[in-house]
Design a protein around this nucleic acid. Structure first.
Length: 907
DNA sequence: AAGAATGAAAT
DNA sequence: ATTTCATTCTT
């Protein structure tokens, strides 16, 4: 049948069933590049407008591939083929958001069942609410389209490519990365990749967006601190602009270089490159073995930085990169600090102590460590890392290796598998689920933010470093300082698997686990109200992203190692995973802790240099991104805007520092990926999550109104939890199967309507839960309108439904089951719903959310923190830090910075 | 790998 | 009108 689909598929992919191998799970893709030019709210609308500008971004590589972009390109090369996944529609978004809930309620239910339920919910959902999703979907789509102008939902028929199948399994590519070129489908050579791969191009994209992001962050901070945004915004912008080109590109290049394994040569090659880089930084230009031009460009700035730093720090010698990092960090910090300071006194010399810079210190200390640890370290970082993370890295490396592009990357598959595994585990061990995951409440976000920043900065350009650490974890000197390394290790061991998407999954899984555990009791009890659901998860959800994978608890994101003493404290605090407060404290602590060092001397110079080069900008951008990612969960405006920036890297960073590292090993390739996802997530999270309760209400209401509503469609039978669950379950399956069957048949041949069991009736109450525990939905038979119910795929509809409808009087045996199920479900749900709703939903702030269903809908955002709020908090934190940190010499630094900044601003 | 669901897009 | 495919994840 699919003939129409274009012949492309059938022949091509014959392997599967004629269809193309669907890649399922990837993340949707990031692209969306929109930019948020200013932090102001333009985002909402301007998407489109800006778009025009953006296009560049899309094109970026210019080559048609689209992907060439920088970092990602490696994978991307092939990507052209892969083409981005289409954006999710409203329903899918809804599903994604609520599936976990459903699952919680019915752990036993399989996905399909869940989907059905979701469909029901969806059907019931108020238009307003629906609209939210719809809007988001649209937004999403728009962004996506912008990103890839020529994108077609259906792959061009042309794609004769061939074989996607074999080459590698197609893993996910990171489509997200860049917009595929519009033409890609048309003919374009899919593969140019390599040529472009050279870093040179760099991202056109970087500019505008990044700036925006950065500026946003900074601005936000400023606002919070002082009210003055003025100069800052303008100044920043201006600076950014100037720098833009160079800066970003440079940064990116670095990142790419470091991260990108692209080199065909394989590990060795990578090593070389890296080394070259290192050299450059550290020793200077003299060493540059690498012929690559682009790099050289980058180098210079870096190099300078390195030098300066090194000068400041006596020791420096071999490891340039460290220096580089530190420098970057410093810069980042400086930027932040500077901005803060600016407000106060930008005049000439603010002696203000606001310096803060804990990060800096930490970094520096860290650097030192590294220094000692590995002067030479295997630069291979990438390669080494890859080796460690066998699968992922392997894939990555391999791909780049060949000249011939293996079209697909195995990623997807792997991912899925991984996920699955984990899920399984979780399932098996219910206990595990809870674990540490501390759900961070908003506060934690801050923490994460700081953390993120560091991570990001590091990750961004220092991919080298990270991996390296991993590779040689402790080894030589295990200075107490390293918090990360240990953490990393732990994590790695426990769950090396999921790196990318963990968050959601984890959360869900966990939830599930919890639920399951509880459930049994409930079932047995059958108490109507079932108090159970303790669910602390509430917080969880919102933060999920931030939260590291359950893994080990160590997740604590410490900012950085500090002095030993402090360190100790920190550790202590951090260790206990349980409390949130602790987490917070942690956050604070790190800040507090700064070890002081005098590095300020160079800063000014560095700063300048960076600025000139543009590094700063990029740096800042990175920082912002990181911050933003973690911070901004809210996305107050529904449309907020997807910034490509966001799409960039954050994901890993945000979620955990560890991840970052890990990710590198795993997929360094996709540095950017995270951001997009993150952005998406934020938005996604901002979407209201409705509790079952809500649906109940609605459903009821609807039922009354419409009466039929979903009635006919078989309610998704829910497996109940009770002891009998098994039976029910079985039944459930049967039913399901029937439906399925039905559907299939129908599609295949209308003829059979599945007369099958009349008994099946079971329509049960329309929609899910009616409120009363016992009640049976039966009351309203209303029959069906023709409206297509949602459930059974489209085909099924009326005719089928008909038979489904419960018999006049009642239910047939099967029906009974269903009912019972429903009842149970209802019970559970209700209780849950309320609590759940409160908690999870949205809630941080208000309880309102519960009712808010409706309200929410209208209102728009639930209570997520608004970006501004977050920013504020962040700002505050900074201030505090500064205050606390007073002892730190940073002041000087600050001073230095100020002038620089100013100058920058002027420019 | 199939499949449940909905929707957007393409055919 | 019909077919693809996006997401999730069990079976």
């Amino acid at each position: 049948m699919k003939g129409g689909g274009g012949g492309k598929e059938p022949p091509v992919e014959g392997e599967v069933s004629g269809k193309r191998p669907k890649r399922k799970c990837l993340q949707w893709h990031p692209l969306l590049a929109k930019k948020a030019p200013d932090f102001s709210e333009e985002e909402e609308e301007e998407d489109e407008e800006e778009l025009e500008k953006e296009p560049v971004l899309c094109v970026e590589s210019g080559a048609q591939e689209g992907e060439s972009g920088g970092m990602e390109d490696e994978s991307e090369e092939y990507s052209s083929e892969q083409r981005a996944r289409r954006p999710m529609n409203a329903f899918l978004l809804f599903c994604k958001r609520h599936r976990s809930l459903v699952r919680q309620e019915h752990p036993r239910l399989d996905n399909r069942g869940a989907t059905k339920i979701l469909a029901d919910w969806w059907a019931v959902l108020d238009p307003k609410e629906k609209q939210k999703y719809t809007d988001m979907a649209k937004e999403y789509k728009d962004a996506f389209m912008k990103a890839n102008p020529g994108y077609k939902w259906c792959p061009a028929t042309n794609k004769p490519v061939k074989s996607p199948s074999h080459s590698v399994s197609n893993a996910r590519k990171k489509v997200w990365s860049l917009p595929s070129n519009p033409s890609k489908e048309s003919s374009a050579a899919k593969k140019h990749p390599k040529t472009d791969s050279t870093p040179q191009l760099n991202f056109a994209m970087a500019d505008p967006n990044k700036m925006g992001g950065l500026s946003m962050l900074l601005l936000a901070g400023e606002h919070a601190l002082t009210a003055r945004e003025i100069s800052s915004s303008s100044s920043q912008t201006g600076c950014a602009d100037v720098v833009k080109h160079t800066g970003k590109s440079a940064l990116f290049q670095l990142a790419e270089i470091s991260s990108s394994p692209v080199q065909p040569a394989g590990g060795s090659k990578n090593a070389e490159d890296t080394s070259s880089l290192t050299h450059v930084e550290a020793s200077g230009p003299s060493q540059p073995s690498s012929p690559d031009l682009p790099k050289s460009c980058v180098k210079s700035p870096l190099f300078q930085l390195a030098e300066q730093i090194s000068s400041s720090r006596p020791q420096s010698a071999s490891e340039g990169r460290q220096c580089g990092q530190s420098a970057l960090f410093q810069l980042a910090e400086m930027c932040l600090a500077s901005e803060a300071e600016k407000m106060e006194a930008r005049s000439s010399q603010p002696s203000g102590g606001s310096s803060s810079l804990c990060a800096q210190h930490s970094l520096s200390s860290r650097v030192t460590e590294e220094h000692e640890d590995t002067a030479e370290l295997p630069i291979t970082t990438t390669s080494s890392a890859s080796s460690s993370s066998s699968s992922t890295s392997g894939s990555t490396s391999s791909s780049p290796t060949d000249t011939t592009p293996s079209y697909l990357s195995p990623c997807k598959t792997l991912k899925k598998k991984k996920k699955k595994k984990e899920n399984k585990d979780s399932y098996e061990n219910p206990a595990s689920p809870k674990k540490p995951k501390k759900r961070h409440s908003p506060e934690s976000d801050l923490d994460s933010v700081m953390f993120t920043i560091e991570a990001v900065a590091k990750g961004a350009w220092g991919s080298e470093e990270t991996p390296r650490k991993k590779a040689h974890p402790s080894e030589s000197e295990s200075s107490p300082i390293m918090d990360q390394s240990p953490a990393v290790k732990k994590k790695t061991k426990p769950k090396p698997k999921k790196q990318l998407k963990l968050k959601d999954d984890d959360a869900e899984e966990e939830e599930e686990g919890d639920e399951e555990t509880y459930k049994p009791q409930d079932v047995e009890m059958k108490t109507e109200e079932a108090p159970l659901t303790p669910k602390d998860e509430c917080e969880n959800e919102p933060d999920m992203k931030v939260e590291p994978p359950v893994g080990v608890e160590d997740t604590t994101p410490h900012c950085s190692p500090l002095h030993p003493t402090e360190l100790e404290e920190k550790d202590t605090d951090s260790k206990p995973p349980q409390t949130r407060q602790e987490d917070r404290e942690q956050e604070v602590k790190p800040e507090t802790c700064g070890s002081r060092k005098s590095e300020r001397s160079c800063k000014g110079a560095l700063y300048k240099t960076l600025v000139s080069e543009g590094m700063l900008t990029s740096l800042r951008a990175n920082v912002d991104r990181g911050k933003r990612g973690s911070l901004r969960g809210s996305v107050s405006d529904h449309e907020g805007g997807w910034n490509d920036e966001s799409w960039g890297f954050s994901q890993a960073a945000t979620s955990n520092p560890k991840k970052l590292k890990k990710s590198k090993s795993k997929e360094e390739t996709t540095p950017g990926l995270g951001k997009l996802e993150e952005e998406f997530e934020k938005k996604f999270n901002s979407l209201p999550q409705y509790s079952p309760l809500t649906f109940d209400k609605k459903s009821v209401a609807i039922t009354k109104k419409k009466k039929n509503s979903t009635s006919s469609p078989p309610e998704p039978p829910k497996p109940c939890k009770g002891s009998s669950s098994s039976q029910k379950k079985t039944l459930f399956h049967k039913i399901v199967n029937k439906y399925k069957h039905r559907k299939e048949k129908s599609s295949a041949t209308d003829k059979d309507v599945v007369p099958t069991d009349p008994t099946v009736g079971a329509e049960t109450s329309p929609v899910l839960k009616s409120g009363s525990p016992c009640m049976s939905p039966s009351p309203e038979p209303q029959k069906v309108l023709d409206t297509p119910v949602g459930s059974q795929k489209r085909k099924a509809r009326k005719s089928k439904i008909t038979h489904l409808v419960r018999t006049a009087d009642g239910r047939v045996s099967p029906a009974q089951e269903d009912k019972s199920k429903d009842q149970t479900k209802n019970q559970d749900e209700k209780p849950f719903s309320q609590e759940t709703l409160c908690n999870r939903g949205v809630c941080y702030n208000d309880p309102i959310s519960v009712e808010s269903d409706v309200t929410d809908a209208s209102g728009g955002l639930p209570a997520f923190f608004s970006l501004a709020a977050l920013a504020e908090v962040a700002a505050m934190e900074n201030v505090h830090r500064a205050q606390r940190a007073v002892s730190i010499p940073t002041e000087g630094q600050v001073k230095d910075m100020a002038p620089v900044l100013i100058s920058c601003a002027d420019q």
